[in-house]
Design a protein around this nucleic acid. Structure first.
Length: 144
DNA sequence: GCCAACGTTGGC
DNA sequence: GCCAACGTTGGC
């Protein structure tokens, strides 16, 4: 079981927007970076990840779940681009900001901290549990 | 709004 | 195949 982090600018598509999509979730379209695409190719149905708001807020605001494995991105004009579908699982009781993440020693190696431009990233199980706890979410419940 | 970091493109 | 130029992302 792997864990992930999805970045989105909230004025374009926010966690609340995903919540409104309900159990069906939404395609994670628009990724045009091979590393990010390869991360999505590696995702399995049911795997969990964080929803991160970039630029505005700069915080982990919720947990999402992969509800459809990789398939062609319907917004792409070339077939190389693919995406998964995700749905909202839980909103963070307390959003975890990038500043707070940077202050945590166990999170110093996160991709979010070291390669801020990658829009779909892997997260280690330790990082996932740690941030869930900071967000006021039960890590055991979130990881299932 | 600026700029550093990164990825991509294209000339050679 | 190298690397300069350019575009984009995202933190500040």
């Amino acid at each position: 079981m792997a864990f992930w982090l999805f970045k989105s600018e909230p004025d374009v598509f926010s966690f609340d927007d995903l919540v409104k999509k309900g159990a069906a979730g939404e395609e994670w379209t628009g990724v045009r970076n091979y590393q990010a695409r390869n991360n999505m190719r590696a995702m399995k149905l049911g795997e969990r990840g964080f929803f991160y708001h970039s630029n505005i807020g700069k915080a982990v605001v919720g947990v999402v779940e992969v509800c459809r494995e990789v398939h062609p991105d319907s917004t792409a004009d070339v077939p190389a681009w693919e995406c998964v579908d995700v749905r909202a699982v839980a909103a963070a009781a307390k959003p975890v900001t990038l500043d707070e993440i940077k202050l945590e020693k166990p999170l110093a190696r996160m991709v979010l901290v070291n390669n801020s431009r990658l829009s779909v990233q892997p997260v280690t199980p330790e990082e996932f549990r740690h941030i869930c706890t900071m967000a006021g979410l039960d890590p055991a419940r979130m990881a299932t």
